[in-house]
Structure formats: structure tokens, C-alpha cells
Design a protein around this nucleic acid. Structure first.
Lengths: 195, 195
DNA sequence: CGTCTATTTGAATGTACTCAAAAGCGGTGG
DNA sequence: CCACCGCTTTTGAGTACATTCAAATAGACG
């Protein structure tokens, strides 16, 4: 079980000795998810937190008109899950779907408490992780409030440099908060202006 | 120094004995902020986390066209601050302003580490606090993506039942991501439809 | 290949914006 | 106590950004 990418992430914030790494390893799992497969669907409880080792996971929800809204693309090195459902043990309003073949490390809820008690430093890691997620999320709100769709699209391309080539445009549109139709027009404009 | 509201908030998540409360009390301050006064302006470093005991604080930023965008109203019992500036010690991109006469409890950065080391349980409190903030923030993104301005306005009224009467409409508009002009038209429509 | 889904394009429409002017409201000084 | 000043809110007219619906085209996969 190759957790090197996970430990690299952990060790940016806390130090772990071999013994602690073994404990950690014994309490997590690797899973492989095929493209278009779901890790979580609406109504289910989210029992896991996921760390993407490879590939891309998309979190989204459906509004009352059944339109999809993508809240996050989690790529290599990112964490994802449904925090609300995970911590409150409530049915999820979200879906999590692999948009490519994806390898994840996942931690089950029931092991999370054990991890915290055996490796208290993890409280710190996850607190800081949450902080960073919150900052990123707040940033996304700001951007959405003050920027045009075209600007948001450019920002998307910078944040996820290779994702445009890897996944369907309709998912990107649903992340940007526009229709696929309009995204198509934006792309056309963007290409023209790049000439 | 009346910290009863603060302890009530803390004790929803962790238990504190009298000794710990004394430590806590010795490491925080009470401050009174007059209406329209700033707690933080752009370029400053945010040295504090704030807990609102009474009143209302508004966090906002200015975009490149000098338009204000309100990211949060912190009312009684809410925490606020500029997390990014606080944890990374970077100049703030945000302003925090009292929109009413406001009483806050604040914790200075330099006392925060001492608090964590003397009362490790606080790591847990603040981790859960961050979780909740993140959930609320994610919710706000979702809502902004999938709802019309009118719907967002109704949601605002439910989230902050008394705020509409307490603060200028232009701030509410900047929270909703619309112009004061358009908010005015929405209110008119809303009143009509309520008849 | 053929079928199914995704993307592009066109035309008409709606939501929210800008700019400018008028009306309302609150605080201050005479 | 009221008149005036400055700021906020409302209203009107014209406009821009993004949407819907429908049809055409392009791509992916068995």
C-alpha cells in the first residue's frame, strides 16, 4: 500500500515516526474507483474522508430543477468527502463521482476517532487542513461574487491546469455556475482573443 | 469581564473547569467598537480572532473597481476575523467594520498558542468551529450558484431575522452579490407578493 | 458503422446592471 | 425646532451578460 503521497502531505505540517506511520497505515485503506463510478450518492451517509492519490473526484449536488452544481474537483494530493455528512452522520445532499479512473486513500469514520486518540498530532493536521479548505472556499465565494464568467473560467484554468483536457466541459460549466452552452461561447471568444 | 456567552459557546463542545476558565479569561480581552469603526483594514495584519458578544461586524473586501463585497455578517455568538491573515500573518485583503455599536471578546495571536498548549481541548473546539464555518461557507457557495437573487434574499432574511432593520440596505446588497438598486426593486416585488 | 451523448450555433428572452435623476432620511447648526 | 446638507434608497430608461429552446454538428464507444 503506497501511502508516500499521503505522508508527504502530512509531513508538511506534522512529523510522524515510523511507529505512527504504521498505526496510520493500519487504519486507512486504498481504493480504486473507475471513471463515472460514484463514491457517494444523495441520501447516503458519507462514512469516509478521501485523499486523492491519482485521478479526479467531482463533488456536486442537484438543485430542485435537477441541474447539477459542481462544488469541487479534487485532484492528486487533495482531500475530499462530504464533511457535513461525515461529522454529523446525516444523509448526504451531495454526490461524489470519479471523473477519471482514480486511486484514493480513505479513512473510515470509525477509525478517525482512533487515529485522533493514538496520534493526537493529527488534530493539528486536520485543523490546519480545514483552515486551508475554508480559505480556499471563501476565496471561491469572493471570486464568484466579483468576477465575470470569463474571468472565473481563466482562474479555473490556472487552478486546474490540465483538467480542461481531462474531463467533459459540462462539468466545468457546472463548476463555474454557467450553462454548457455559454461556456462553449466563452471558449470560442477566448481562443479568438488568444490569436 | 463577562464571558458567559463565550463559555456557553465553548461548553457546547468541550468541558472547562474553573481553573481553565481562569486561564482563558487571563488570555483574552473585551473590546467595545463604535458603529462604523474598523477593526481591520486592507493591508493590516489581523492579530485577533473575534467573538461577537453583542452587535454586528461586517467583513468585506473591495474589488478592482472599488466595489465592496460583504463576505460575512458576524452577529451575537458568532466568531469572525481574517483567518488567512491571522494564521499566515499576511496583510489582509479584507476590512472588518462594526455596523452597530459592538462588544467583542478577542484573542490575540500571541496568546493563541499559549491557549492551545495550556488547554489542549481548545484544539478540538476550534477544529469543530472551523468545520462549521466551512460547512456554512460551502452552503453559501451552493446557494449562490443555484439560486436567484430573490431566493437568496429570502434566505438572508431567515438567517439574519433582525438584521434588515438594523443595517443599511447597501450592505445587504453587497452580501447578496447584487446592486443596491436591484435590491430595492426586489424588496418592492417581495412586499407586493406578500400582500 | 451506428447510436448515444456532448458540444456548438442561432434566435429570442430574462435577469440584473449602469447611469441619471428624484425622493427620503438623519444628523447638525443656527 | 426647523432648515439644510449629505448620504441612502427609489424609480425610470436603456443595455449587457447569460439563459432557454431547438436544431445542427462532432465525438466516443460498442
Amino acid at each position: 500500500m503506497d501511502l508516500s503521497k499521503v505522508f508527504k502531505s502530512l509531513e508538511r505540517i506534522i512529523e510522524l515516526d515510523e511507529y505512527e506511520k504504521d498505526i496510520f497505515t493500519s487504519l486507512v485503506e486504498i481504493a480504486i474507483i473507475k471513471r463515472n463510478q460514484y463514491l457517494l450518492t444523495e441520501g447516503e451517509r458519507c462514512g469516509y474522508e478521501y485523499f486523492v492519490i491519482n485521478g479526479c473526484l467531482r463533488s456536486f449536488y442537484r438543485d430542485e430543477n435537477a441541474n447539477e452544481h459542481t462544488t469541487l474537483f479534487a485532484i492528486e494530493g487533495w482531500w475530499t468527502g462530504n464533511l457535513k455528512s461525515f461529522v454529523r452522520n446525516t444523509p448526504s445532499e451531495f454526490y461524489i463521482q470519479a471523473v477519471e479512473d482514480t486511486v484514493v486513500m480513505r479513512i473510515h469514520k470509525k477509525n478517525m476517532d482512533e487515529l485522533y486518540s493514538k496520534i493526537p498530532k493529527l488534530e493539528r493536521y486536520f485543523r490546519i487542513l480545514l483552515q486551508n479548505r475554508l480559505l480556499a472556499t471563501q476565496d471561491r465565494i469572493s471570486k464568484h461574487l466579483s468576477e465575470s464568467a470569463l474571468t472565473r473560467f481563466s482562474n479555473f484554468l490556472m487552478l486546474y491546469p490540465t483538467l480542461e483536457q481531462r474531463i467533459p466541459a459540462k462539468h466545468i460549466a457546472s463548476y463555474l455556475g454557467i450553462t454548457p452552452t455559454y461556456l462553449s461561447r466563452l471558449r470560442k471568444k477566448n481562443i479568438k482573443s488568444a490569436l
